[in-house]
Amino acid sequence: MGNSLRHIYAIATNTFTEAIRQRVLYVLVVFCLVMLGGSSFCTQFDFRGDDFKFMKDLAYAGISVIGLLVALLGAALLIPAELERRTIYMVLCKPVRRFEFIAGKYFGLVALLTLFVVLMAGIFFLALWGHESALTGDILAASKGRPTELQAQMIAEYRAAAYDPALVQALVLLWAKLCLVTVISVFLSTLASSTVFIVCCTLLVYLIGHLQSVAREFWLEGTVAAAWYTRAFLAALALTAPDFQTFNLIDEIIAGNAVLWSNTLPVLGYAVGYAVVALALAALVFEEREL
């Protein structure tokens, strides 16, 4: 057990180091800086009342896009490469269990994802703080420090929208969603050995995952008459794909609705459960794989 954890840790840190030392990553970092810089420019699209919705949407979409890139490409690039270059022999000829290799790869990628999300979120919160203090600063300057009732109301609204603690919840949810995409990509990497194939399949599961709830309700309710093969197809979708709509709480948080940790935690639990099962599946498939 202790050995297993040590092995997983060693492989995870190695995976993380490998990813960090790739040049592609710096391109992503630059891209993310440019995008967030762009988002503060885009605040020109001042949605009048300005609950910073546009900024938040853009930032979360940006983190989603970059996170998805990392999640989609991470496993799909690293695991087949390890097989193709046969560096995996060097690992698996040692007293290392195959599931340790899989888990190590996964947690290394999760570490990478975490770094990215934290980095981008940090920049986003800075930008949000800048925008908010500029807006309230303008109001305070115009009222010479003695805001009227309406101005005080506006300042209060700006501050509530900018420093909404639920934004952290949204971030954690987004991170969990990306970790789920990663685990699917890791699982598919144990089945296939072509990067393009793995990326495409993961993307497909990602998209299907957003329709899973529709398929599920359609199948379970069974109110609409459908041919048996349609129903079987829907059942297969519902049974295997994760329900990515679960993470739509992120939208609600950005829209400023009250989302409590008691709403968020079950979703996180679901993501953890799915990840554990997917890792187990990956380990089972990989156990039999000929190298």
Binding site: T17, M90, C93, P95
Partner: peptide
């Protein structure tokens, strides 16, 4: 495996290390 050491053919290593 604990008692084996292995050098594969055309050994390739993580080049970033």
């Amino acid at each position: 495996r604990r008692r084996i050491g292995f050098l594969p053919e055309n050994a390739y290593f993580p080049a970033f290390l």
